[in-house]
Amino acid sequence: MRWNIEYKETWLHQANPTAKLLLFLPMFVVIVFVHNPNVLINWTIGFTVLFMLFSGYRMKHVLLLFMPFLFIFISTSSSMILFGKGETTWFRWGLVHITEESFYRGVHLGFRTLLFAIFGLMFALTTKPVLLFYSLMQQAKLKPKYAYSFLAAVRLLPIMLEEFQTVHQALKVRRAAKAKGFRGKLELVKRYAIPLLSQSIRRAQRIAVSMEAKGFTNERTRTFYYEVTFGKYDVYLFVVMFVIVVVGYYMADAFPYVAIKDVR
């Protein structure tokens, strides 16, 4: 889902959503089996540059969106840095035991998470949910009942948000919008969840009945309001990603930043 901030339509927006998924998802597997931090650093730089140049968003917005990534980077790398196994001790204080090996492993994990986050953001910011599900029906042969259910559910979100505010105000007036302790907090979650869920279920039932009546059923041969196809931009994306991956891999061998080649 896109935020309501202004952006230009770039070729990344034009690329086919299914093609984007098919290119991005295997990267997860590839990245998980890379153990050389130099490669990940190069890839992170490459894909960050791609994102900044072609996402079509203003630089200040991009930087704002990158802020949480810093927290993620620190939080994923910190426990491995502080408590990981290793031989060459740098620092020891009580339970904290920082070694050279654990430090690089921690940083490697940080970059790995950063890469996943960049791919995720790149996809989410350049893809319209409606076109994603239309494309999945047409290119990936997703059954219409699933795709249209998702689309209907996405459309219901604003109503749910409004309901959430109503419940929140009702609880506030009755001084029931706060609770103490773990148990209290769980009770509080229930106080919000029960009305929201029950209303959503009722609404989903009604919508499903009317959708069935209007023929949103499981026909394989159906026509679509939006025709989505593969195109030249998918080829561009493939080429760019291929270049970043190969060049990054080669550069990591030729000009490494750190001497460690395998963090395991």
Partner: peptide, 13 residues
């Protein structure tokens, strides 16, 4: 479709 839609709506919440 009813089951799918209800499941998806709950899941999106």
């Amino acid at each position: 479709l009813t089951d799918v839609l209800t499941t998806v709506v709950i899941a999106i919440v």
